[in-house]
């Protein structure tokens, strides 16, 4: 846990970006998420940890209504982004997902060029008035994805030709290109090797300066390294939620302790 010193702890309370109350998720008859209450703060990295199948990814997908694309999933409870209910009938999930971007477990670049991959979001949301503006957005996003230097000479090569770590950073660049306010990351490093993982983690720490980042991870070390807040899920319940440092050094719940010390998981 000595990595923890790398992350500067900011204990002072920040503005709450996303407020979740009494959240329930059902997959058909299966009650996957039970009574979860979480506040996601702005400009903070929040990590969701827990054993496989505990519901952390499911919960993450509720935050930008990705569960809408699954027919049998049903979500209850209140999710408020800046005080507005994101499950309100009047909310277009399309608009919501522009504000709450997502990066997936497996890098999934589109079978298009690197440039088109990044430009895809700005294009569909109409963020650029002309080609020059679009070029600018693409460059900026790639820089923020910490991949600009590697691809600037081959922007029109297919995105699928990059290495795994590069692909994932491309996907992050693609996600930030739409200027989201919250960035959801579903185990973004699980398909990457240690070097690529380190690069992505560094990137996440950078992103914290502008976005609220929520990351689901299997690796407790990773949670400890990159996050300020940590939520521990177990069997669909939110067991404990608090400062990362406290969760890892002095957990309140015995289940959290068992998980952290490797007895369950």
């Amino acid at each position: 846990m000595n990595d923890m010193s790398r992350v500067e702890r900011q204990v002072d309370t920040k503005e709450i970006k996303l407020e979740c109350r009494d959240c329930q998720v059902y997959y058909g008859d299966n009650h996957a998420i039970k009574d979860v209450n979480v506040d996601i703060e702005d400009k903070t990295v929040t990590a969701f940890i827990g054993p496989s199948g505990c519901g952390k990814s499911t919960f993450l997908r509720c935050l930008n209504r990705m569960n809408d694309t699954i027919d049998i999933a049903r979500v209850e409870g209140s999710f408020k982004l800046d005080g507005e209910d994101i499950y309100d009938k009047r909310v277009d999930p399309v608009q919501l997902r522009a504000k709450v971007g997502m990066v997936f477990q497996k890098p999934n670049p589109f079978p298009k060029s690197i440039y088109d991959n990044v430009a895809y979001g700005p294009r569909i949301h109409g963020l650029a008035k002309n080609k020059a503006e679009l070029d600018e957005i693409v460059e900026k996003s790639l820089r923020r994805g910490a991949i600009w230097e590697e691809v600037k000479d081959r922007l029109h090569a297919p995105g699928t030709g990059l290495s795994g770590g590069q692909q994932q950073r491309l996907c992050i660049a693609r996600a930030v290109a739409t200027e989201p306010e919250v960035l959801l990351m579903d185990e973004p490093c699980s398909a990457l090797d240690p070097i690529a993982t380190a690069q992505v983690e560094e990137l996440i720490d950078d992103l914290r300066s502008r976005y609220s980042v929520v990351i689901v991870t299997h690796s407790m070390q990773q949670a400890a390294r990159v996050s300020q807040k940590t939520a521990f899920f177990h069997l669909g319940n939110l067991v404990e939620f608090g400062e990362t440092g406290q969760i890892f050094t002095n957990p309140e719940d015995p289940r959290t302790e068992s998980y952290i010390t490797g007895r369950i998981g």
């Binding site: 930008n64 990705m66 694309t69 399309v94 608009q95 919501l96 997902r97 522009a98 504000k99 971007g101 997502m102 990066v103 997936f104 497996k106 999934n108 670049p109 589109f110 079978p111 895809y120 979001g121 569909i124 949301h125 996907c171 693609r174 996600a175 739409t178 959801l184």
Partner: peptide, 12 residues
């Protein structure tokens, strides 16, 4: 995963 990637960016 292709579709998810696109929905995640807010595409219809």
């Amino acid at each position: 995963a292709m579709r998810d990637g696109s929905y995640g960016l807010g595409a219809t």
